[in-house]
Design a protein around this nucleic acid. Structure first.
Lengths: 323, 323
DNA sequence: TTGTACGCGTTATCAC
DNA sequence: GTGATAACGCGTACAA
């Protein structure tokens, strides 16, 4: 290949990497030769020599929540054109799985690492830190300075939608949650904070299930909640999927929404706008989190000087018929 | 590391790969030494020397359809414990994107390749063939012998659910579809075939939209279909998400399901059992497709002698309240 | 700006 | 069953 372009191998190498310090004429010749020969540099040899691959490990809890699909989509759109290749790992909210994924993929010497939230095992944290691989945390914000992260305040967003229910005149506002991951618990804290300030917090109106979030579970939680506290006049579901399940249960049981019970969700997932009635929810900036997080990582991978801090994004209340 | 175990590097290499022809005593010593040192073989060096990595490229059209998420989950569960690592690529039903992904990832010298269906560009097909990488096709079946694939007959499944509607006494059976990928069109063919045999095929009852499948689109298709042919007494939606949208539209418009119009979906996605009324649908074996496809690939990667052919799996009609 | 010499960490080959 | 040697195909470091 270098022969075809009549340059030394190293010049070809530099030209193909678009490294600086190569005569444009030679670079041109190299690119043409590569094109004609269909030459593609071997990523393995490249990784071995440079101790760095073009892969970026992206760890998400699930793919069954479209939230993370949107996030991944944005990450891909941002990284791929820059020559970095996302390698998706699914943790299932399991720190042991996350650790195994890190042990498996960190030896690939990835160029970067994108992880969800801050909650992980001690061992995982150390694996990341000792690897020296640039890492950005997504979906949450941190108060610790110097930690690269892009997210929004789950706490405040949870409080904001609770306040919306208060503003609608509701007084017996319940909270139904599943999964109970850190971000859900932060929303729960926001809910409590908001109601406590209003003097309306009642622990018996919280229904927390460790089960995997699903539409079917939402239906069950809705029924359980109404059976337990028939006087509830609003329910804040921690995620749109269980909120949709709640709305469907209401429809099945003939319970008027929002007249008898208002229903609010979280994340504005697909289909929420099509429910009957349409679901009030909090639109969270997951695509923007993916984009900005990947962009921050790009900077770090290329050796940005100023240590990037924490980027806090906005969420948006979407008021629809269910409240 | 080899020093620590007091053996030559090559013996260590063989021991760690569990290659045959190593004294169990030495192998033991090597494994212990690796354990103590926290030694992990470098995948890049391994790939460079052996011309083969442990990665398996998996190409799916979308992640927003939980069908493919289930598929990927099963693939991961099958490959990962065997030391192979799925690398997910999303094509968005775009052959140019698929080709780019192949051009990008094939140079990694993956151990195997898992692709969705048979419909791809000439160039993509050649890239795969010339790479020599073992490849299994998923979700469809092929009549061509010798092509490794795991799937089911989309055509017959489409015909079967249409027959169910006939059996329910419906005579004006419509077909609503989105996305219009090859598998959707095969279901359409099954629908036509079934109705034509019954002498009830009416092209004006087909509504095909190239738009991306979604709940919102399903609602729109439902309304359009009823406006166009008020005498429709059943609608077969090509996928559960648009079927769910149809049911929600019916609920919103006060159209009785199934009394006025029966509704059937396809794939049995999350939430279909929670609809009001619950959605009749075709349960497709995507997890089994993932598992069996990955298992077939495992055989090929390890050099199975008998060229694996086509595995055809079963689907299952799930009758619920909507019909 | 370009080139030389070397090494990255592992496995293939072939001898012992 | 085990080991010596070489090579995999690039990039780094330094020299020119």
């Amino acid at each position: 290949m270098a022969r075809a372009a009549e340059v030394s191998p190293i010049t070809a190498s530099r030209a193909l990497r678009n490294a600086r310090g190569v005569d444009p004429t030679l670079a041109q010749r190299v690119h043409e030769a590569a094109e004609q020969l269909g030459y593609v540099p071997d990523p393995a040899a490249r990784a071995l020599a440079s101790q760095r691959s073009s892969q970026v490990i992206v760890l998400v809890p699930l793919l069954s929540n479209t939230l993370f699909v949107d996030l991944l989509e944005a990450v891909h759109r941002t990284l791929f054109p820059e020559g970095y290749h996302p390698l998706i790992g699914v943790t299932h909210y399991d720190s042991a799985e996350e650790e195994l994924l890190l042990r498996t993929y960190l030896p690939l010497r990835p160029a970067g690492l994108l992880v969800t939230g801050f909650d992980r095992s001690e061992a995982s944290g150390q694996l990341i830190a000792r690897s020296g691989v640039p890492c950005v945390h997504l979906m949450e914000t941190s108060t610790t300075p110097g930690v690269p992260c892009v997210g929004f305040s789950q706490h405040d967003a949870g409080a904001a939608i609770t306040r919306h229910l208060l503003d609608r005149g509701r007084r017996r506002i319940a909270f139904c949650a599943a999964q109970l991951d850190p971000r859900v618990m932060q929303r729960a804290a926001g809910y409590r904070h908001c109601l406590a300030q209003a003097g309306l917090y009642d622990p018996s109106l919280e229904l927390l299930s460790p089960e995997r979030s699903s539409i079917a579970l939402g239906a069950r939680l809705f029924e359980d909640m109404l059976a337990r506290a028939p006087d509830v006049d609003a329910i804040f579901f921690c995620n749109d999927d269980i909120a949709q399940g709640g709305l469907l249960a209401a429809s099945r049981l003939g319970i008027a929404v929002p007249d008898r019970v208002a229903v609010a969700g979280f994340n504005d997932l697909a289909g929420s706008d099509q429910m009957v009635p349409p679901l009030t929810t909090m639109r969270t900036p997951r695509s923007e989190v993916g984009r900005a997080g990947a962009a921050m990582l790009l900077g770090m991978m290329r050796g940005s000087q100023p240590a990037p801090g924490c980027v806090e994004l906005d969420y948006e209340l979407v008021v629809r018929g269910s409240t």
